[in-house]
Amino acid sequence: MSFLRALLSSARPARRSPEPGSGLPTDDDLLLDAPDERIAPALVAAAQGTYAPASALLAATRERAEWENRDRYTLRLAAFAHHRQDWLTDWLLAAPGDPDALLVKAELEVRRALESPSPADRLRPAGPLIDAAAAGSPCDPVPWRIALDHARGALAAHDTFEALWGQAVMRSSHHYGCHVAALKYLAAQGSTHRECFDFAEQAAEDALPGSLIQALPVRAAFALLPATTPLSALSPSSPSSAPPSPSSPSSSAAQLTARIDKAADLAIALSAEYEAGDPWAAEVRNLLAYVLVSRERWTEALEQFRLIGPYATSFPWASPASGAPTDDPLGRFLELRYAAQSRAASGAAPEAGRTKPVGVRRWTPGRSRSDGHYA
């Protein structure tokens, strides 16, 4: 049995506000990576140097087995600690064996290592932290998701990754974060696009109704698109044309294109199961909008931008693969939203022009959406 089976730019017009009645929020109403109402107070407190709300939040997710929320909140808290760690240091000093504090610390160290020039060397100290977090919460799949990311950065062999994957799915067989980690590992190991699609499609087929795992194939599509459809060619001023084919036989290229569209269709159906403006589905909808724009499915892309509402996310717009400058994901989001609106409305390319990138308007603890803060 194979390892795979074992796992089971920008010329643009001056930006305009959306047309009244379009259902799209204005540019000023958008906020990048806005937290939900449960974690927002914890982030505000962390900004003030206090860890108690974060501790209470993660303890609640552990006690209630809210593994998807636990993973998402751990990622957000670790991302905040990446820039300001005093509150996490105080938490670990006060409760060195706290599995929630250890979980955030483990995620933080893996994140830092993966962003460094030599991740394998920097990942070694994170191993004991992951082990301690797993031991402190034996039913929790999140330490094992972190272990999967750790294995990817450490270039772990397939059998090592399989063992970790087995531990993860034993605790939560439908955990979205673990499936994303597995897909990233496959891609990092040099698996073909077809192998990544095979894994993602099988996982989506086995997923529970409404599970974000059904968006896994569109993540596989995202990894393929930069090689086939550079978004820099899809600004509103560019003439519409069929995307270039991969450097493979035409029949194979057609098969991959069909899988991309199938993945998008599945993600559209998943998106329809969530209310418009639901922050839980925001990242999946942002990713789906990217894929639909790259496939020039303008009307469907515009509908996803409407469903996203004010919840723009850094991924995928900050990814180098998207052709976006990493310091302006919101600008890229707005550029492609305008492209979808313009093409869907008339099919005609607007007059070319260029504007300076807008500042990235991030949610900052203690700031309201309307205060005009830009990071």
Rank of each mutant, 00 (worst) to 15 (best):
L234G: 01
S9D: 10
S137V: 02
R306S: 03
A344M: 14
L292N: 13
S55E: 13
D121H: 11
A312Y: 10
P279Y: 05
A233I: 07
V169Y: 04
L288T: 09
S17Y: 03
A157L: 05
A345G: 08
Y311C: 06
S245H: 09
A181M: 00
P138C: 06
A60Q: 14
G127Y: 10
A188H: 14
H193M: 01
A182L: 06
A133H: 07
E303A: 13
S10V: 02
V180P: 01
S172Q: 14
W67P: 00
S241Y: 01
P320S: 04
L212N: 00
V358N: 00
G136H: 10
A52T: 13
G23C: 05
A375L: 06
H179R: 06
D265G: 15
L270S: 08
L75P: 02
P209S: 06
A281R: 12
E109G: 00
R84D: 15
S211N: 08
R343A: 11
I268C: 10
A254E: 11
S314W: 01
S10D: 02
I260Q: 10
A14C: 10
G372K: 05
W91F: 01
H193Y: 00
E303D: 13
N286H: 11
Q202M: 14
V142R: 01
P325G: 04
Y338L: 14
R369I: 02
T74S: 14
R259A: 08
A14P: 14
D206C: 11
P125F: 03
A352S: 11
E303R: 13
L77Q: 05
L288A: 08
L32W: 03
A281Q: 07
A375H: 06
F3M: 12
L302M: 14
L77C: 13
H179P: 00
